[in-house]
């Protein structure tokens, strides 16, 4: 049995109440985490990974569960997202590929976007980590070094392994945040921030309320391809999303994004724009796939080797782009 660390759970019923609890805790300099579906946070807590003394649950806040073609609330479950008639088909495919049906019932969109980064030196029991004298991301006060890139002790290169972000970035999603200081929003690709411990731009006490998608979202076609050990529920070892708008002579717009390869997901604007400007069918896709492979820098901290994951990025990009040349 995994012993839960002690923490106090708060269960607010409105967004305002949640933000006010966060403000009170912040004023007293007490650390806390948000919890949505808990399918990432609770396993991490059971392994005593950076557990906080207070946890604020978002599950009672119904205003965060709104879902339609252009608006996805942070608390929409992955199950509901995948089953909704409003969801873009490529987003359905990505959502359906996450974890298992059971986990998708609890796991949420907000939790997926804010998923903690992963590393096989980190996602281990407390005893296991103690046996290797910890690592920088959860050093238990020892100032332990990073096990992947040693002798630097400032950077964590744990991998971002969530599936929704690349598809949402290609669909032009905007992410909306709230705190007691007000609301703000930004293109999703600007939300993520290096390194593996910083993860994103969220300030203490700030949370994700929802995602919006542009009006033209249904004019974009595409695919999401994922590499993993077991089809049933494994995290992406690499994931590639490709979305495009078609003209008469080929794509007029193309976006490619990747996940599972670095500490933040990547939107490969330059490579995609080059492909559009020199469009020549399958030859262009080959060149594009190679350019995406060269642009990603996986490290040795997931189950497959970095070189294999890089090679597979090329294969996945080609597969994701196959619809561009199908007639």
């Amino acid at each position: 049995m995994m012993r839960m660390p002690p923490f106090k759970l708060h269960t607010p019923k409105t967004l305002n109440d949640a933000l006010n609890i966060a403000r009170e805790l912040s004023n007293e300099e007490i650390e806390f985490d948000w919890i949505a579906g808990g399918t990432d946070l609770l396993p991490n807590y059971k392994w005593h990974l950076n557990a906080k003394p207070h946890v604020i649950s978002l599950s009672g806040i119904s205003e965060l569960s709104k879902l339609n073609s252009n608006h996805i609330g942070a608390m929409v479950s992955l199950h509901d997202l995948a089953k909704s008639k409003y969801t873009h088909p490529v987003l359905v495919k990505a959502a359906d590929s996450i974890a298992s049906t059971l986990i998708r019932r609890s796991g949420t969109v907000g939790g997926n976007i804010c998923l903690d980064t992963r590393c096989y030196w980190f996602n281990q029991t407390e005893q296991w980590r103690e046996s290797i004298d910890w690592c920088h991301k959860c050093d238990c006060g020892t100032e332990a070094d990073c096990r992947v890139i040693p002798n630097q002790n400032t950077l964590c290169v744990a991998t971002y392994q969530a599936d929704l972000a690349p598809v949402l970035m290609c669909l032009g999603a905007t992410i909306h945040l709230a705190s007691v200081n007000g609301i703000r929003s930004m293109p999703l690709h600007n939300f993520f921030e290096l390194d593996g411990m910083t993860r994103n731009v969220l300030q203490h006490g700030e949370l994700v309320t929802h995602i919006t998608l542009p009006e033209d979202v249904n004019e974009w076609k595409g695919d999401y391809q994922k590499l993993r050990q077991r089809e049933s529920w494994d995290f992406p070892e690499a994931g590639v999303a490709a979305l495009w708008r078609m003209g008469t002579k080929g794509p007029t717009q193309l976006r490619i994004a990747t996940t599972g390869l670095e500490s933040i997901p990547g939107l490969h604007l330059e490579e995609a724009n080059n492909a559009i400007s020199k469009w020549n069918g399958s030859n262009t896709i080959d060149t594009l796939a190679d350019a995406i492979r060269k642009s990603v820098k996986p490290v040795q901290n997931t189950w497959y080797s970095p070189s294999y994951r890089k090679k597979m990025v090329k294969v996945l990009t080609k597969r994701a782009c196959a619809g561009l040349i199908e007639r």
Binding site: M2, T11, T39, P43, R105
Partner: peptide, 30 residues
């Protein structure tokens, strides 16, 4: 049953208001 306690085995599944859920990853208060 408690299998993995981490969401990977499904041994702890129960129905919450008719929906299957992993009880090892569910806070009782919720």
């Amino acid at each position: 049953k408690r299998g993995c306690d981490m969401g990977t085995c499904g041994c702890c599944s129960v129905l919450v208001n008719g929906e299957p859920r992993l009880s090892c990853l569910t806070l009782a208060a919720e």
